[in-house]
Amino acid sequence: MTPQKRGLIPDPERARILAAMRARDNADAELRAAVVAGLLAGGSVREMAALTGMSTNTIQRWGREGGWPSAAQKAARAAVRAENDEWNARLDAATRALEHLDAEQSPPHH
């Protein structure tokens, strides 16, 4: 084999490296798409992070960049929030009514 000039990468190895870099970029794009699809399908950020070994911040960032949460997921979360707010308002009202009754029924302090 003819000696190469110092620092030059032979053509076969250069082609192999460039092909591996393209494959890495394609794999990264596929991983991002798969993570977003999993989130859009209802998977949780924590479960996705546990599965992939990636941070929850990365999962959330990729998800937001990919269109997660969907309009339907946002609407569902808003509905649950409204339901919880209504429940908490009713609970607060009942607590205040009970406190008022308790204050009325307590014997006077001397």
Results as ranks from 00 to 15, higher is better:
His110Lys: 11
Glu13Cys: 07
Gln60Lys: 03
Ser44Glu: 10
Gly63Thr: 02
Ala23Thr: 07
Pro10Cys: 09
Val35Asp: 01
Ser106Glu: 13
Met54Tyr: 07
Leu51Cys: 00
Ala78Asn: 09
Pro107Trp: 10
Gly63Val: 01
Lys74His: 04
Thr52Arg: 01
Ala76Pro: 00
Ala15Gln: 10
Ala19Thr: 08
Val35Gln: 03
Gln4Gly: 02
Arg81Ala: 13
Ala33Cys: 01
Glu104Val: 05
Asn88Ile: 12
Asp28Arg: 14
Thr2Ile: 15
Ala15Arg: 11
Ser44Asn: 07
Trp87Ala: 11
Thr52His: 01
Gly43Tyr: 00
Gly42Leu: 12
Thr95Pro: 00
Asp102Ser: 12
Arg6Asn: 13
Glu83Phe: 00
Thr2Gly: 12
Ser55His: 02
Ala89Tyr: 10
Pro108Gly: 05
Ile9Cys: 08
Asp85Leu: 14
Arg14His: 09
Glu99Gln: 15
Thr56Lys: 06
Asn57Gly: 12
Ala75Glu: 14
Gln73Phe: 06
Ala27Thr: 01
Ala15Val: 04
Ala94Arg: 14
Glu13Lys: 14
His109Thr: 11
Lys74Leu: 12
Ser55Tyr: 02
Arg32Cys: 06
Thr58Leu: 01
Gly67Arg: 05
Ala27Ile: 00
His109Met: 11
His110Cys: 07
Gln60Glu: 02
Pro10Ser: 06
Gly66Ile: 02
Ala23Ile: 03
Trp87Thr: 05
Arg64Phe: 01
Pro10Thr: 05
Arg96Phe: 09
Pro3His: 08
Gln4Tyr: 09
Asp102Cys: 04
Gly66Val: 02
Ala49Phe: 02
Leu91Val: 03
Ile59Ser: 01
Ala34Asp: 15
Arg6Pro: 10
Ala94Asn: 07
Asn26Ala: 13
Ala93Ser: 07
Pro108Asp: 10
Ala79Met: 12
Ile9Tyr: 00
Trp62His: 01
Ala103Asn: 08
Gln4Pro: 09
Ser44Ala: 06
Ile59Phe: 02
Arg96Gln: 14
Asp25Leu: 04
Ala34Gln: 13
Ala20Lys: 05
Glu47Thr: 04
Asn88Lys: 11
Arg64Val: 02
Arg77Asn: 11
Ala75Gln: 13
His100Gln: 14
Ala93Pro: 04
Glu65Leu: 11
Ala71Glu: 15
Lys5Met: 08
Ala19Ile: 07
Met54Cys: 06
His109Ile: 09
Ala94Tyr: 05
Leu40Gly: 01
Arg90Ser: 14
Ala34Gly: 08
Ala15Leu: 07
Arg32Thr: 03
Asn84Gln: 15
Arg46Ala: 08
Arg32Asp: 10
Ser106Tyr: 07
Ala94Gln: 11
Ala29Glu: 04
Ala89Cys: 09
Arg32Asn: 10
Thr95Lys: 10
Val36Pro: 02
Leu39Tyr: 06
Pro3Asn: 11
Arg81Gln: 13
Val45Ile: 15
Ala82His: 09
Trp87Met: 08
Met1Phe: 12
Ala37Asp: 14
Leu8Met: 08
Arg14Asp: 06
Arg96Tyr: 07
Ala19Met: 10
Asn26Pro: 00
Asp25Lys: 12
Glu83Ile: 00
Val45Met: 05
Trp87Leu: 12
Ile9Pro: 00
Asn57Met: 06
Arg64Gly: 00
